[in-house]
Design a protein around this nucleic acid. Structure first.
Lengths: 230, 230
DNA sequence: ACGCCCTTGTGAAAGCGCGCACAAAGTGGG
DNA sequence: CCCACTTTGTGCGCGCTTTCACAAGGGCGT
């Protein structure tokens, strides 16, 4: 262990901040492509759609990479955020499930351009295996363990039907996958050391429906819902 | 207007709670299909993957729908949550963008079963227009305003390339859409009264990469990252 | 009818995230 | 060389979220 921690960095980046770093990174790439050399917190915050004070506080968790009176150097900040997120190295990803969603994910350009390499696209259906998708030949699910091992896959993307998800998840974890992105509408049980993030399209719609209904209630006048009760 | 508000309900459901209600609903549907008549907060919380105290507090915001010593009636709770989320009425959804992702969304079964009806699937590409997807014929983007008006569409799903998203969004808002689910990797600008939720597949992967890297750093011993600095 | 046991519903406290507002620091012009 | 201007980095208070712990309430066996 190195004496005592020299800075409060590296250890304590708030989860909320981590979730926004990719957002800043995306905005910065946009500025970079347009040739902008430096950017103020105000401008960057505006592009990223957040409060400028929040942006500055977020960035301050990584270190002091800005220049007072000037702003942030775009390229340098891109590098620092990328490094913090671990995007300066490549990550191998396996997508399990080659249905509509799995194929859409494999075909999605946003992955390859940010340090993620799709190592394999797997499916259980023999009729789908062998099919060509986004330059990849769909492989059989039983090759999962070999793929994870050979390709050093550390992130698994589950795009299977709900019923198959937990089984696939267990096999991923058993094979050594450390993080899972789950698109199946189930809660996955995993060991302590495995990270899971979920994306549920149906849930997002339901949240929107709630707000939409509230707006409708407001237009009709309050209190009408009570009439339906009891 | 009904005298004074009888309960502190309806008005003040925390956003964090709203985001979890669909999760509980999904868990309850599972229990319902298995014929379970009642469920305790402990059991339901376990299935939904949350803390039982949090579950109880969440449900308490809707009212007192449990029975002490027994638990919650599954069917009754399903009804109450559905009503609160506004799922007892049908919502018309338009999906804009019939690429891989748009088609996957149109084909995704989870929508129709939860009170959402896909009114139309639209695309700008003449070669895609007319194609049959999930029982729907892809229509041209210029029909957007007509579709929204005729089909009473209140939720728009944007599955277009990033460059087209803001334009499509503006047209949706102009046509009267009140909520937008955005899959394009851009920050959308909308008027005050419009709700936007975003799903960015690339961002989720980047967050996982961060945690994965942290785990790797831990294994190699702390402090190695500092050697790369300056 | 009574008392035991189970589970809900909720105060209270701790934790976290957000945004204001300002001091610190660096730039450029005169 | 100094001063005015710009922008960062952050201390602080506020409100939301989570969690604990327990009193209140209801069923069930005897």
């Amino acid at each position: 262990m190195t004496s005592r921690t020299p800075r409060p960095r590296e250890r304590g980046i708030p989860e909320a901040t981590v979730a926004r770093l990719p957002l800043y990174l995306r905005a910065l790439h946009g500025l970079s492509e347009r040739g902008t050399p430096t950017v103020s917190s105000e401008e960057l915050a505006s592009v990223a759609g957040v409060n400028s004070a929040k942006l500055r506080k977020d960035l301050s968790h990584l270190g002091s990479y800005g220049t007072r009176g000037v702003g942030y150097d775009v390229e340098y900040l891109i590098y620092q955020i990328s490094r913090e997120l671990g995007l300066t190295q490549d990550w191998s990803v396996a997508i399990i499930g080659a249905g509509n969603l799995g194929r859409a994910l494999a075909d999605y350009g946003g992955f390859g351009t940010r340090g993620f390499r799709i190592a394999a696209l797997l499916d259980a259906d023999p009729k789908t295996v062998g099919r060509e998708v986004a330059g990849l030949s769909v492989r059989h699910i039983d090759e999962l363990e070999d793929v994870v091992s050979d390709e050093k896959v550390s992130i698994g993307v589950i795009a299977t039907p709900a019923a198959a998800a937990q089984g696939v998840c267990d096999r991923c974890v058993g094979a050594g996958v450390g993080s899972i992105l789950n698109f199946a509408p189930v809660v996955l049980n995993v060991p302590e050391h495995v990270d899971v993030r979920k994306v549920d399209l149906s849930i997002e719609l339901q949240i929107l429906a709630f707000h939409e209904q509230r707006k409708a209630v407001g237009r009709r006048g309050p209190g009408w819902a009570d009439a339906l009760e009891v």
